[in-house]
């Protein structure tokens, strides 16, 4: 495989085919808990993205020297170090958002999407590809977070980018969009059950798109001869 097509494959896997949020269903806890507004979702998405890229790069760089038996604790320690950095940075620069994310910021350590990538990809591949994989997986995860956050914010409060100034600074308060005003908010969208229902609809939507693409593809009759390949990797 050429390097270019490998990067293409990595992007395709991270953003759509093997999306951590919609397909692997990893990291559901922050995904469902903090996506009450778009701003929260972007904040957590960026934090996860940053941690994922850094941890993938580091783990890939030291993969020759990590004994197989103790690799998981080492991965967790590396991830925890980066999460601590991100947490301190957010505490310093985006304090409001830091407060509204609360416990879910330190909980990125236990996000299976990150340790999953470390174990499945970064510990077996060179630094460049591993960082790119982290970037794509992180963007895929952040996109799902943002979609879910946007849906829940619109349904629940009728706004978009409410509290964006917490993340982007004072100028961002003009981003706030009032889509509709109502005296009664649709509480279900803000509460956790609404997150599960909206997530179900997102997954269903992705599967529907996939199957409609598969239906449109011209059927290629099996011309290739099936060969049994034995892979002795790992």
């Amino acid at each position: 495989m050429t390097e270019r097509s490998e990067y293409k494959e990595l992007s395709w896997q991270g953003l759509w085919k093997n999306n951590p949020g919609l397909v692997q269903l990893l990291g559901l806890c922050p995904l469902l808990a903090v996506t009450t507004t778009l701003t929260n979702a972007i904040g957590l998405g960026l934090a996860t993205l940053l941690v994922l890229v850094c941890s993938n790069a580091t783990i890939s760089a030291i993969r020759q020297w990590v004994p197989k038996e103790v690799r998981i604790p080492i991965f967790v320690l590396i991830i925890a170090a980066f999460v601590t950095c991100v947490q301190l940075l957010m505490n310093a620069f985006t304090f409001g958002l830091y407060q509204s994310l609360g416990i879910f910021l330190p909980l990125i350590v236990t996000n299976c999407a990150i340790i999953g990538r470390a174990e499945a990809y970064a510990s077996k591949n060179p630094v460049k590809q591993a960082s790119f994989d982290g970037l794509m997986m992180g963007i895929g995860f952040a996109l799902v977070l943002m979609t879910l956050g946007a849906i829940r914010e619109i349904l629940g409060q009728g706004t978009l980018f409410d509290g964006a100034e917490l993340l982007f600074g004072g100028w961002a308060s003009i981003l706030r969009i009032e889509i509709f005003t109502s005296d009664t908010s649709f509480l279900l969208a803000i509460l956790p059950p609404g997150a599960f229902i909206a997530m179900g609809f997102l997954i269903a939507g992705k599967n529907a798109i996939d199957s409609s693409i598969a239906a449109k593809q011209p059927k290629t009759e099996a011309k290739t001869i099936e060969r049994v390949r034995v892979n002795f990797e790992g």
Partner: peptide, 10 residues
């Protein structure tokens, strides 16, 4: 239940 947790006042 959906209505009750979404619109408790009404």
């Amino acid at each position: 239940v959906m209505l009750l947790i979404s619109f408790p006042v009404q």
